[in-house]
Simulated assay, not measured.
Amino acid sequence: MPNAKLVFINGRRQLVPIGTRIRQDSDRQYNQHRAQTKQDYLAFYHSTAWQHTRQAVLLRDNGVCQRCGMPATLVDHIIPSEDDWADRLSEDNLQSLCKDCHYWKTRRETVKRKKGQGRAMRINIIAGYPGSGKTTYVKRHLGQHDLVYDYDALMAALTGLPEHAGNIDANDYVQLIYELMLRKLKAEQTFEQVWIIMTYPDEKLDSLLVSRNLHHIMLSTSRAECIDRLNKNHRKLSQFMKAINKVDELKRDGKYDSFEVVAG
């Protein structure tokens, strides 16, 4: 083949047109560009502080890729350090990944950055009694470019059980999704609105996303009406009374004072 070069693709030698760019070429050019333009950035990854943190994260994750479960080969910033330099040594923002999972994650981030897609994203925290209509409220206001976190819907999707059935063993997995989502939302601007459905206020959420456009909404549906709805839907009221009483306690303590009260 004229004007061809011999390369290794998937461990096999192949002839390809001379102008073909394969991943090794892209990696080499990318690394050369970083060495010329981001010397401070590269110096960090050779620092003692980073090496110690990297080892601690690999140990914490048992050397397993947190996406696919294969052996991990590197430690990745969940929110890229280029987007949140101040958080570069926070173990909460780090995860162990294998080479392939890291490649695809970085590729998605690069595509998003090149598109320059950013929106004036608003994060809505929707609270209220069980049965107050939080999910219905979100569905009525949902847009095309929105993200929704609904604990009950995620639990049902993960377990195959009806919504509100609950599964203590799956709770940790739903919670992991929530925590990962909060970390990504720190640097996210892809969505127009984010809807987080919860019964109680979450101080961790407010603290982590303090720099974002947070909007707290409390549905005005009364305690008596919520109890009536739960009974009409043949829900076991005993499963919800603890949460209902907890909402009453938090309301008395002023924990919902920052919430805008709207009709459910």
Rank of each mutant, 00 (worst) to 15 (best):
W104Y: 15
V111N: 02
N62D: 13
A56C: 13
D76S: 11
I79W: 11
Y41G: 00
L74G: 07
K99S: 13
L58M: 13
E91T: 12
Y45R: 05
E91C: 10
V57G: 14
Y103D: 04
A49R: 11
D84M: 13
T48V: 01
T73G: 10
T110Q: 06
V64G: 09
C65N: 10
P71E: 02
A86L: 08
P71I: 03
I79Y: 04
Y45L: 01
A43N: 12
C98M: 09
Q51S: 15
W104A: 01
S81A: 14
T53R: 10
S47Y: 01
H46R: 06
H77G: 07
W85T: 02
A86G: 03
R108L: 09
R60K: 13
E109W: 06
R107D: 00
T48Y: 00
R108A: 12
D92L: 12
E109F: 08
C98K: 09
V57I: 15
Q66T: 09
K99T: 09
I78L: 15
F44N: 02
L89W: 06
V64I: 14
E82W: 06
A86N: 11
Y103H: 13
T73S: 12
Q95N: 03
L94S: 15
G69M: 04
Q51P: 00
D100S: 11
P71L: 03
W50Y: 13
A86Q: 13
L94M: 15
H46F: 00
N62G: 10
L42I: 03
D100N: 11
S90H: 06
H77Y: 03
R107F: 06
C65M: 08
R88S: 05
F44D: 07
S81E: 14
A43I: 02
L97P: 07
R88L: 03
G69Q: 06
G63H: 05
L97D: 05
A86D: 15
H52E: 12
E109C: 06
D83S: 11
H102F: 10
C98E: 14
S47H: 03
C101A: 09
D87A: 10
A56F: 12
L59K: 09
C98G: 09
S81K: 15
L58A: 05
A49L: 07
V64N: 06
P71T: 03
A43T: 08
E91A: 10
Q66D: 12
L97H: 05
Q95Y: 02
D83Y: 08
V75K: 14
D76C: 10
S90E: 12
A72G: 07
T106D: 01
Q51F: 04
A86K: 12
H46C: 00
E109K: 08
E82H: 08
K99F: 11
T73R: 09
L42S: 02
H77K: 04
W50D: 14
W85G: 01
S47E: 01
L74I: 08
Q51D: 14
D100W: 07
V111Y: 10
V57A: 12
H52F: 01
D100K: 10
Y45K: 07
N62H: 14
E82A: 13
C68V: 01
N93F: 04
C65F: 08
L74R: 10
A86T: 05
C68S: 08
C101D: 13
D100R: 12
S96W: 11
Q51L: 13
T48P: 00
S90I: 01
